[in-house]
Amino acid sequence: MSTRDEPPAAQLHPDVEALLEMVAAGVESGARVPLPRLTPEQARADFDASSPLLDVAVAALPHEAALRLPMRDGERIAARLYALHRPDPAAPLPVTLALHGGGFVVGSLDSHESLWRDLAVRSGAAVLAVAYRLAPEHRFPTAFEDACDALAWIGREGRNAGLDPGRVALFGDSAGGTLAAGLALAARDTPGLPRPCLQVLAYPGLAARQDSNSYRRFGRGYLLEAETVAWFFAQYLRDEADRRDWRFAPLEAADLAGTAPALIVLPACDPLLDEGRAYGERLRAAGVSVTSRIVPGMVHEFLRMGNVVEDALVVRAEIADALAAAFRQRPAFRQPALGQQSASADA
């Protein structure tokens, strides 16, 4: 991986180009209906149904658990924990808090399950995937608050669940990347939230306005359509003022210093490319360690296209290696010896 953004290559990978031609033909024939012409419920079903066709199937891990995490408003949201090894409170596992993409409207635990399992296998760490609540039923900032409350749960209850709150990373793709970037800022400023050792942002949305050169260049015909993004945000945002809130647009944050080291993964043919590059430069200017990876020939969502293009699996392996390296740099929690526990309790 390079440590600096490289000039993007606009030429599509042949396998990705074939996929885009198939999508376009389906829309033209009427066999495929664009998301903005569906109801949110229909769009979610369509998104989940297409996911297994795009990605490789990853077998269930030896230790998977369904959880219900408490939120600040009294509700509980679904989450899934994936691990190769049984979580043990005496020697807890490092954990990646995983936030799925889907424009804050679609996406689910099911749509990204192969990706989460793959990251758990390749990194050797646990992955906690969170089903944050979706719009329009739950508008901004509910998704962000759900992500914060999931991180707070790791800090509060993680050790009892066999997870190490001292070795936490954040991973998000697309809208999940937006949430992960905002969560890294919140963790810097909020007492009690675990401080992540790495934030992995895969083709995140980061800007208040979608008016960059890459947005104009790749906003039509490269999978993520400008029309779709506008539809997503119309469902998610309460009003225009929300666009200037850093919890929606992390590029609006006044100061990025002190946030977790970042790995930013950007497809070269993605409308969101320029805002990802801009965020990386702002992080560097604030003294944050940043590794940028611009992947030639790829489009939005490519990490979940293991059945389409081999590069998806290659980059997933690189991300897992980065997670494992970040966890190795943090000391692991060890349960105090019995005598130490007694002394602490007596004190």
Rank of each mutant, 00 (worst) to 15 (best):
A285W: 08
A286M: 08
G306W: 02
R277H: 07
A285D: 11
G276H: 15
R293S: 06
D270F: 12
E281P: 10
M298T: 01
D274F: 12
G276P: 09
T291S: 08
M305S: 01
R277N: 04
P267T: 14
D274R: 15
G297W: 03
E275R: 15
A285N: 11
I294F: 04
V290C: 03
A268T: 08
N307A: 14
L273E: 01
G297I: 04
L273R: 12
A286F: 09
R282I: 04
A268D: 06
L283G: 01
R277F: 04
R293G: 00
D270M: 12
V288G: 05
S292Y: 09
G280V: 13
R277Y: 01
E281T: 12
L272P: 00
V299D: 01
E281W: 14
R277C: 09
G276S: 14
F302W: 05
R293F: 05
M305H: 09
P271K: 15
G306V: 04
E275D: 14
M298R: 01
A285L: 14
V308F: 05
F302E: 01
P296N: 06
V299E: 03
D274N: 10
V290I: 07
L303R: 02
G287M: 10
L303Y: 02
V290F: 03
N307T: 08
A268I: 06
V290N: 00
A286N: 08
G287D: 03
V290G: 00
G287H: 07
V288A: 06
S289Y: 03
M298A: 01
A285Q: 15
G280I: 14
E301M: 07
P267Y: 13
S292R: 12
E301I: 08
N307F: 05
F302T: 01
M305N: 00
S292C: 13
